[in-house]
Design a binder for these strands. Sequence first.
DNA 1: CCTTGAACCTCTAGTTACTATAGGGATTAG
DNA 2: CTAATCCCTATAGTAACTAGAGGTTCAAGG
Lengths: 145, 145
Amino acid sequence: MDFSIGELARRTKVKVPTIRYYEQIGLMPPPPRSQGQQRRYDDSHASRLNFVRHARELGFEVDDIRELLAMSAKPNQSCAEIDDMARRHIAEIDRRIAHLTTLRAELRRTVDECGRGRVCECRVIEALGDNSHEHGRLDKARSRR
Amino acid sequence: MDFSIGELARRTKVKVPTIRYYEQIGLMPPPPRSQGQQRRYDDSHASRLNFVRHARELGFEVDDIRELLAMSAKPNQSCAEIDDMARRHIAEIDRRIAHLTTLRAELRRTVDECGRGRVCECRVIEALGDNSHEHGRLDKARSRR
DNA sequence: CCTTGAACCTCTAGTTACTATAGGGATTAG
DNA sequence: CTAATCCCTATAGTAACTAGAGGTTCAAGG
């Protein structure tokens, strides 16, 4: 039913020291311990850690992730606040998907050209490099814990 | 026609010390200098730096970006090699878009619920937290410069 | 029960990718 | 020509990990 930090690492592909680090900075809750002071985890920990890992891979900063986690499983928080947070994150996600889609299109074009035996010319820089669609990052004025 | 590092920073929203850092690690080429040893940039630098910035925001590591840059503007490179690189990056981009889409859907559902005056319950962890769609990261066995 | 080897503990130090500061020189507006 | 502003190098600090040292706990086999 519950398992060690090593097992959690295996299940989530997050390294053991990283899990302890996430506990230190408050991304993961301090889990119960065995008699000998060893950490004991359950499925909810694995789920949360998987979320953190995916979010990090997608380029979200720790503060963004803290905010997303705070949104989750706090049913009676201010609706207006959650709504605002969620909207900001949706806008940022939209921008990222747009960029990734553009980049993918250019890579596909390159693969396609290569396949037809043409000279391989890849113009990814032009795809993401121009200021044609300017935008700002996620608002950073948020409370730090 | 050409401009200073400060102007480049303003145009790309990349901080001045970061630009110099990118030069140090080879993401940006060493630009020509003025008589007084000050860096002089042109539009091609701005374009390349914009690409780097966007790619970093999307969560690509410096080594990934180096690879993408290497693909670009080297028309007579081995087609097979470029094709392979591009395909690997496309696969990774597909995974990221899928994750972002899932996350966005959950945030939208949350906003929607909030709007209807229901109790705000956001289940982003469940959206990205489960092992339902397991996958590996981009292959890391690549030559370091 | 007792051993023994793998896995765990804390703590510290190193890595990557920036970011800021100090002390001094170059550029440009008046 | 001078004063404000920007640029230079070099070093140190931060965020988010990652690895290692030195010692403890757990659990499988005898």
